[in-house]
Every structure is written in structure tokens, then in C-alpha cells.
């Protein structure tokens, strides 16, 4: 018997100390995890709390049905519809670009490209997605709009078409990468079965892989939509800041996000109705993106369980 085992107290102390420290650290780590929960709660709380006084002034019915949004005029009107319309039009234009291009790139990378090409292209696509949005705004205003003006005479300098097209380019990497992940998750034996029946790669891709990954691809589209809806700088720079109830993308119109930026650029006092109106607008934006996010989340879950 050595001296150590005759006197186990120091070991017990050390173990107790380490266990205690472990418990303290676990609490700290949990607190960090809870930051995410608190952030979500804080977002909802702040938006609702700051928007509530706004709805004291403006009945919800007017807010949802009035067709004018002029909160900074002498005779203010508070109908959210023009801003929602602007948001939906730019989003729609963006999707017309991003969905075909993103899906094509995803199919190509997942089913056709060699391993080396894929490894080289994915980081490049990642970089395309990392470009600051204000730079995309510059791109829309200074490069895309003059080009479109040559094709469409009479196109105003600020228009939703150019902003939407650029947002579309912006979310291509996003749509492509999420859909590619979904397609790569389709098990290889399904492809092999298709090849064994004499199908070409194109037939395999469009009739086996894409249907197999459909919910994942749909989730990619929906996440892309929620990106486009929340996009701010491109529309603030290139689509104009005038609320305008129109479904015509060649016109100039403000989106929900552009309105928030416009008000923030001015110096509104804390308790003015203009200040409260950006929180009401933000609340609408949050609800729209939340609906899309939940749908996307539900779809990804389904697709994970598919095989």
C-alpha cells in the first residue's frame, strides 16, 4: 500500500472541485445557448411594443386596406398595401431569375460536374453570396438600370425590375447550394436503378433525382423567397423610395424595407408616429418572413425523413 491510497482526501477534493467547476461551466454554456432564445423574444417584444402605440393612432383596418402610404406627409395615410406590393413585385422578379438559374446550377453541380469542378465552383459561388448588399445596390443602379433602359425605352432611373433582377442574382448561390445539398442526399442506388434502365444523365436528373429531392428543393426556394422579401439595400438604392401601389415592375416603388431605411436616414424623434410606423412595417415584414421560414423548416424536416 502506498502513501497515496492511505490518504485519498486530496483526490476527493480535486474531483469535487472539478465537478463543481464543470457544473458552473455548464450553466454558462446554457446561458449562451439561451441568448438565441432571448434574441427571438426580444425581437418580437420590441416590434410589438413599439408598434402598439402606432395602432392606437391607426385602426388595423385602415392599415390593411388603405391604398396610400404617406406617413411623413401633412395629411398622413397609413395603408401598408403599397409597401407590401412593392416587396412582392421585387421578390417575384428576383425569383424569376433565381429559381431557374439556381436549380440549373444545382442539377449541373450535383449530377453532371466532375468532383474537381464542383470543388472549384462551390467556393466561388459562396463568394458570390458574400458580396455586400450595398455593392449589389450599386450594381443595380449604375450597371443594370442603364442597360435595361436601352432595352425598354422610358424605364425610370429607379425601378423594381432592375432591383429585382439583381436580388435574383444575389440569391442564386443560396438557392443553388441548398437544392444541391438536397439532390446529393438522394441515395445513389436510385440513380443506378435509373441508369440500369438505360436512362441518360439528364433523364435521371429530371425524373429521379429532382422528384426525390423535391421537398428539399422547395425548401431552398422558400428560403430564397424569405431572403428576397427581407432584402434592403438593393431596393433602397435602385427601386426608389416612393410608395406606389402597382404590380408593374418597370415602375418605381418602395418596399417595406426601403421605407424603414428612408425613415431611419432622417432624424425622427423617439415618440413620433413616424418612428412607430417603422416598427409596424417591420412587424409586417417579420410575419411575412416567419411564414416562409416555418414552411421551409417543415419542408426540410420532411425531406430529411424521406430516406
Amino acid at each position: 500500500m502506498t502513501a497515496n491510497s492511505n490518504n485519498p482526501a486530496p483526490f476527493r477534493d480535486s474531483i469535487r472541485r472539478r465537478r463543481l467547476r464543470d457544473r458552473g461551466i455548464e450553466a454558462l454554456l446554457l446561458a449562451a445557448g439561451l441568448v438565441a432564445v432571448f434574441a427571438t423574444l426580444a425581437i418580437v417584444w420590441i416590434l410589438v411594443a413599439e408598434a402598439l402605440p402606432f395602432f392606437d393612432h391607426v385602426p388595423l383596418r385602415d392599415f390593411l386596406t388603405d391604398t396610400m402610404w404617406t406617413p411623413l406627409f401633412a395629411e398622413p395615410r397609413y395603408g401598408i398595401m403599397p409597401l407590401v406590393a412593392g416587396t412582392l413585385v421585387t421578390t417575384f422578379v428576383a425569383l424569376v431569375v433565381a429559381i431557374p438559374a439556381g436549380t440549373l446550377i444545382a442539377i449541373y453541380l450535383s449530377e453532371f460536374a466532375t468532383h474537381r469542378l464542383r470543388e472549384a465552383v462551390k467556393p466561388a459561388l459562396e463568394m458570390l453570396g458574400a458580396v455586400p448588399t450595398v455593392v449589389y445596390g450599386y450594381f443595380a443602379l449604375v450597371m443594370v438600370t442603364p442597360f435595361l433602359q436601352k432595352l425598354i425605352p422610358g424605364l425610370p432611373g429607379f425601378n423594381m425590375l432592375s432591383a429585382g433582377l439583381v436580388i435574383g442574382i444575389m440569391i442564386v448561390p443560396y438557392v443553388a447550394s441548398v437544392s444541391e445539398d438536397a439532390m446529393r442526399a438522394v441515395p445513389n442506388y436510385m440513380r443506378e436503378g435509373s441508369y440500369a434502365m438505360g436512362a441518360t444523365r439528364f433523364q435521371t436528373a429530371t425524373r429521379v433525382v429532382v422528384p426525390g429531392a423535391l421537398s428539399g428543393i422547395a425548401a431552398a426556394y422558400i428560403l430564397g423567397i424569405s431572403r428576397a422579401v427581407g432584402e434592403t439595400m438593393v431596393v433602397a438604392v435602385a427601386a426608389g423610395l416612393q410608395p406606389n401601389l402597382t404590380w408593374n415592375p418597370t415602375e418605381s416603388a418602395a418596399t417595406i424595407t426601403a421605407f424603414i431605411v428612408q425613415v431611419s436616414l432622417g432624424d425622427l424623434p423617439h415618440d413620433s408616429i413616424g418612428y412607430q410606423s417603422i416598427f409596424a412595417a417591420g412587424l409586417v415584414l417579420l410575419v411575412i418572413t416567419l411564414v416562409f421560414n416555418i414552411a421551409g423548416f417543415a419542408l426540410t424536416r420532411r425531406f430529411r425523413e424521406a430516406y
Partner: peptide
Amino acid sequence: AGVPSIIYGLL
């Protein structure tokens, strides 16, 4: 991750 960045600005 899906909340638009401008909402963080409002928060």
C-alpha cells in the same frame, strides 16, 4: 438565421 437583417436593426 432567417430573420432579415433590417429586423435586427429595429431590435
